[in-house]
């Protein structure tokens, strides 16, 4: 069992043809971004065509799950039964590890196991997977400086 931070009652992913491969990789604890076959521009959330060159050909690249805190909010209202409050919604600037064009890709997620006083934009973070079920795992993030 991996560590759990959020209850089963949290809102569930809603998935379409574009995003299904991303969720399937996530279930295997692999964090991926979609990259254009033609111009190598990388994107999240998944989309059918590239916003930069309009190519409809793309592939998936796995990234390290390291990044920096771009912004965050500490939320004091529960969105699900049995949830621990407050919780932190964050925007993570992902390290692209030389993949694609190196363009900026961010993801929305949570910071877990952090003291609110430790939260600071620009701090380094790393992915911490939470297995919600056989089919759903979510990439949460931890501050690298926290134990």
């Amino acid at each position: 069992m991996s560590e759990r931070w959020f209850p089963d009652s949290m809102p569930q992913p809603m998935v379409d043809k574009e995003s299904l491969p991303w969720w399937q990789a996530a279930a295997q604890h692999r964090l991926t971004v979609q990259c254009c076959d033609n111009c190598q521009y990388c994107r999240l959330p998944p989309a059918p065509i590239c916003s930069e060159c309009q190519s409809n050909k793309s592939h998936w690249e796995e990234i390290s799950g390291k990044g920096t805190l771009y912004s965050y909010t500490e939320v004091h209202r529960a969105v699900a039964t049995g949830q621990t409050l407050p919780f932190v919604i964050a925007i993570i600037q992902l390290d692209m590890d030389g993949i694609g064009t190196g363009n900026s890709v961010r993801i929305m997620s949570n910071i877990v196991d952090a003291n609110p006083d430790e939260l600071e934009i620009g701090k380094a973070v790393s992915v911490a997977w939470e297995t919600m079920s056989d089919t759903v795992s979510l990439p949460r993030f931890k501050l690298l400086s926290s134990s």
Binding site: F6, D8, M10, P11, Q12, P13, M14, V15, D16, E18, S19, L20, W23, P45, V75, V79, A80, Q83, F87, I89, M108, S109, N110, M132, S133, D134, T135, V136, L138
Partner: peptide, 23 residues
């Protein structure tokens, strides 16, 4: 148990990518 639900619109697909984090 949490599962993958079908998104039946662009809005649902966009929301469905962030709602699991409580957004």
């Amino acid at each position: 148990p949490p599962g993958l639900l079908p998104a039946d619109s662009l809005l649902m697909a966009a929301m469905g990518f962030v709602m699991p984090y409580g957004m």
